[in-house]
Design a protein around this nucleic acid. Structure first.
Lengths: 190, 190
DNA sequence: CCTACCGATCGGTAGG
DNA sequence: CCTACCGATCGGTAGG
């Protein structure tokens, strides 16, 4: 079930527009113009505007799920696992700034069925993340505090960085990555 | 220039809808229904949908600006000032969860002129915040790191809390406040 | 504050 | 992939 080049083009352009204007304020005419087609021609490749959003959100969810799977499988300390999770968030956001913004901010416009799938998938990811935090707290590597608070502080400490992905060169970006990771380490390591 | 009760009602209802569905996806018919008027009757109190957004965003900006003014005037250490700033963000979000969400996420839908005012005001706030951070770093109270990184980590560590404002009772909320503040302290104090 | 209504734009389809 | 087009909904106005 590979995706045609044209279809991928439509998704990429749409993600950029959804990021900039939001899903609801982006018209299929906006998308068609950016791709270089007549509005109606889009419908040879997609079946609805909602389908675009669904695919952007699912692709992004897939990246997080795959990253989590890998980290869970590895034989590493909880400190290393958390370090890898922070890198996972930073890397995904760096390489897919538009999709990540849509994933973060536009998922509420998903149609009902896909919305509930999305939410339960996100919940599963959060639970896996918290399991690592809990394990690190229990063994005394991490400061004891509410898992929900810890989880939210960590992911939100990272969430703003993708807005700088295009403004910063690679080395400036890496410097910020290290600053964030140091901050989190000081905040959570015992 | 006081605001009529009806007008305030419209702003409050609109903020709730903008928070839940986003500005673009909220119709004036949605607002009218929640307020209990016919759509056209709204226009006796407001002159456009955009005007509502402008007022919500400006009211919220005002709360932050007033808080910053107060903190700047006080004779306090930088450590105390930062502590007060974190409380300012948490308190505003706790008491105005809808407006804060609109302020955070929907400002990009502001009309051109109000948008540029909004951005320059936000920039001024950020600069004031950074001035306190820089002063604390220079005197050796705070860990030395990029002001932009420090600022963004701090405000984003707090930004998720208003989603819990209605689910948590006061004491549970205060517990989370302290956890966040401890985390920030460990991350930034020398 | 309501009834009645308007032009513009929306997502999407028919047919080639 | 395009031309032509559609019903629904949008923000907003006229007039009382």
């Amino acid at each position: 079930m590979k995706r045609s080049k044209r279809k991928q083009e439509i998704y990429v352009s749409s993600a950029r527009l959804f990021r900039k204007k939001g899903y609801a304020a982006t018209s299929v005419r906006d998308i068609a113009e950016l791709v270089g087609l007549e509005p109606s021609s889009l419908y040879s490749h997609i079946k609805s505007k909602e389908e675009i959003l669904v695919n952007i959100c699912n692709d992004c969810a897939e990246l997080f799920a795959e990253g989590m799977d890998l980290i869970q499988k590895e034989e590493k300390t909880n400190i290393e696992k958390l370090d890898n999770l922070v890198d996972l968030h930073i890397d995904i956001a760096y390489h897919n700034p538009s999709s990540v913004t849509v994933f973060n901010d536009e998922w509420r416009h998903l149609p009902k069925e896909e919305l509930s799938q999305f939410l339960s998938r996100r919940k599963a990811y959060e639970d896996d993340f918290k399991k690592i935090l809990k394990s690190g707290m229990d063994e005394g590597s991490f400061v004891h505090m509410s898992l929900t608070t810890t989880f939210n502080i960590i992911i939100n400490s990272v969430k703003w960085l993708h807005f700088f992905a295009k403004k910063l060169d690679k080395s400036a970006f890496e410097a910020k990555r290290e600053e964030i990771k140091s901050f989190i380490r000081r905040g959570i390591y015992t």
